[in-house]
Each structure stands twice: as structure tokens, then as C-alpha cells.
Amino acid sequence: MENYSNQPYQQQPVSPPKNWLVEAILVTIFCCQIIGIVAIVFAAQVNSKFAAGDYAGAQSASKDAGKWTKIAFFVGIAWVALCLLWIFFWGGLAMMSNRYGY
């Protein structure tokens, strides 16, 4: 008969960590496709690792999915800002050249 009292008891989490899948898909569609795909890959790993009993792996995948989702979001915002600056620069230049007859 084994004595289980000396073995450490580890309570299993009740719910899986946030998987960021919806956010990763939206960021992939609207902001940055390449980084968004990386976020989707990590987000897809969260539930499968949790179901397999790898709680630390699920937590790590959730953290990585959140990180890549946020990076893709801010890269997308920066890209839109740069495009708007580019448009305003060339539009202003065209307006000035048209105004002064260059």
C-alpha cells in the first residue's frame, strides 16, 4: 500500500487561460497578416495543451498569443499612421505645386 500523504498535491485549474483566438483572427484580418498568423498559432495551442494536462504550457501559449496579438495590433496601427502621413505629404505637395503653378 502506498502512502500518498508525502506526495505534493497540485490542484488543477478549473478553466483554461485566455486563448486570444478571436483577437488574433481579427488582428490578422485587419492589421498585420504575418504577425497575426503567429498569434493564431499560439492561440490555437492554448486549449489543446490545457486539455492534455499541460497547464504550464497552456499558460505560456496564452502569454505568447497575447504578446503577438498586441504586437500585430500596434504594427497595424503604425502602418496606417505611416500611410496617412504619406498620403497627406504627397497630397499637400500636389496641392502646393498646383497652387503656385510648378
Rank of each mutant, 00 (worst) to 15 (best):
L26Y: 09
W68M: 14
N47V: 08
G36D: 01
I29V: 14
S5A: 13
W79S: 13
W86N: 13
N47Q: 14
V46M: 03
L85Q: 03
Q10D: 06
A52H: 03
F74C: 06
V14I: 12
I35C: 14
A61I: 06
Q45I: 01
P13G: 04
V22M: 12
N6E: 15
Q12L: 14
K49F: 05
S5Q: 09
T28Q: 10
L21F: 03
Q7D: 07
I87P: 00
Y102C: 01
L26T: 03
W79M: 10
F42S: 01
G66R: 02
K18F: 13
M1P: 13
Q7G: 01
V27E: 09
G36F: 08
I71A: 05
N3P: 00
W90F: 15
A58F: 00
V46F: 01
S5N: 07
G101T: 06
A65G: 02
P17Y: 07
W20K: 03
V75K: 04
L85W: 04
L82T: 08
I25T: 09
V75R: 01
G101V: 07
Q7K: 14
A24R: 03
G76E: 06
I77Q: 05
S5V: 09
S97A: 14
G92M: 04
N3Q: 08
S15Q: 12
L85R: 07
V46D: 00
Y100E: 01
I40Q: 04
T69L: 04
K67P: 00
Y9E: 14
C32V: 03
W20Q: 12
Q10E: 11
V80H: 09
D64N: 12
M1F: 11
A81H: 04
G92P: 08
N98M: 05
V14N: 11
F88C: 13
A78K: 05
L82S: 13
K18W: 04
Q12S: 14
C83Q: 09
S62Y: 04
A58L: 02
A72Q: 02
Y4V: 11
A51V: 02
Q7F: 13
N98W: 10
G101L: 08
F88N: 09
T28L: 07
N98F: 12
V80A: 14
V38K: 11
A65H: 01
F42G: 00
N6Y: 08
S60E: 12
W90E: 07
W86V: 03
I25E: 12
N47C: 05
A51G: 04
Y102L: 12
I40N: 00
W20L: 11
S15A: 15
A52V: 03
Y102G: 01
V14G: 10
